[in-house]
Design a protein around this nucleic acid. Structure first.
Length: 303
DNA sequence: ATTAATGTTCAGAA
DNA sequence: TTTCTGAACATTAA
């Protein structure tokens, strides 16, 4: 499930073979699955993109953006099982779209592959990007979010911190897998209301976000048991070997070796955590500032 | 054979 | 305003 590290890995992988090149042709691959969502229609998109040169490849939250020299942008949203590939994939059954480039390099095509088909491809003008993916729809990138921004965002909502991490309007890039890993590293219980986190805890959270995402990028993302996620060159990610909690229900916690990892459901999605390392009440025992009840804001504002 | 589970986003409801 | 629910989809496991 491509989250920030996987999408960043896609961007870095395809960049050398895509930036600066001219798109000769866009083709829809024939597969018998239902067609994925393409905006505007595929023929229109293909016509507007053919002959255009790619200026820049970048990541916007969990999306890959190909800025074209003429000013429009292709936005690829992998969602659950979407991938960008440079090398001809083994499973051709779920290829969706191919971009062919002019010239000859080691790789001359870019494919969008998507087993479940929830992914989308859109061609946007600059206006449309601002409207559909602007600051009101997408929070700061998780790698750029400051401690101050975390403090502010956490103070503003009573929702459980795990659920908050998944809210792309608050912070862009974190998904279900990394949310669990981040909270484990930060030693925070996933069900704590965000507004109840103390400053020291928010600081741990902010640092854990950085640490987990950076290392996950270094390891080129997580390829789970179903082997869906692959890098652009069709390699496995390696961060799954670092996972402490995700998909490890009933296994011993690798950190404390005392408790078993627990799976709970929050907002209809699995959360994994260690009930020993991630206690609901106060943790941060050793750190100065031992206040606890203060964090008021508990009562509803009456209208 | 049916059913549940998987996770991201968005529309629409509470 | 804020938070919650279900639909979209393909595949696998129970």
């Amino acid at each position: 499930m491509p989250e920030l590290p996987e999408v960043e890995t896609m961007v870095r992988g395809i960049r050398p073979f895509v930036e600066g090149r001219r798109i000769a042709e866009v083709r829809r691959c024939r597969c018998r699955c239902k067609p994925i969502s393409i905006t505007p229609s595929f023929p229109q998109l293909a016509r507007r993109v053919a002959g255009q040169r790619v200026d820049q490849v970048r990541r916007l939250g969990k999306r890959v953006v190909l800025d074209l020299l003429r000013g429009e942008s292709l936005v690829v949203e992998p969602r659950m099982t979407g991938l960008l590939l440079l090398s001809d994939p083994v499973d051709r059954a779920h290829l969706r779209v191919e971009w062919r480039f002019d010239g000859r390099m080691k790789h001359n095509s870019l494919w969008f592959w998507d087993r479940r088909g929830l992914g989308t491809i859109s061609l946007y003008t600059a206006d449309e990007i601002a409207r559909c993916l602007g600051d009101d729809k997408l929070g700061p990138d998780a790698l750029l979010m400051t401690q101050r921004q975390w403090l502010q965002s956490c103070a503003n909502t009573q929702r459980e911190i795990k659920v908050v991490l998944l809210d792309q309007r608050l912070v862009a890039g974190i998904g279900n897998l990394y949310a669990s890993e981040i909270l484990h590293l930060a030693r925070l219980h996933p069900a704590v209301p965000a507004s109840r986190l103390r400053p020291a805890e928010v600081r741990r959270l902010s640092r854990a976000v950085q640490a987990v995402l950076r290392q996950a990028i270094e390891y080129e993302g997580s390829t789970l048991a179903d082997a869906t996620y692959r890098t652009a060159l069709n390699q496995n990610g390696r961060y799954q070997s670092v996972h402490r909690v995700y998909a490890r229900a009933d296994k011993p916690c690798g950190t404390c070796r005392t408790s078993l990892i627990v799976r709970v459901v929050q907002a209809q999605r699995s959360t994994f955590f260690c009930p020993n390392c991630q206690r609901a009440g106060s943790s941060a025992a050793g750190l100065g500032n031992g206040r606890r009840p203060k964090r008021g804001r508990g009562k509803r504002a009456s209208p």
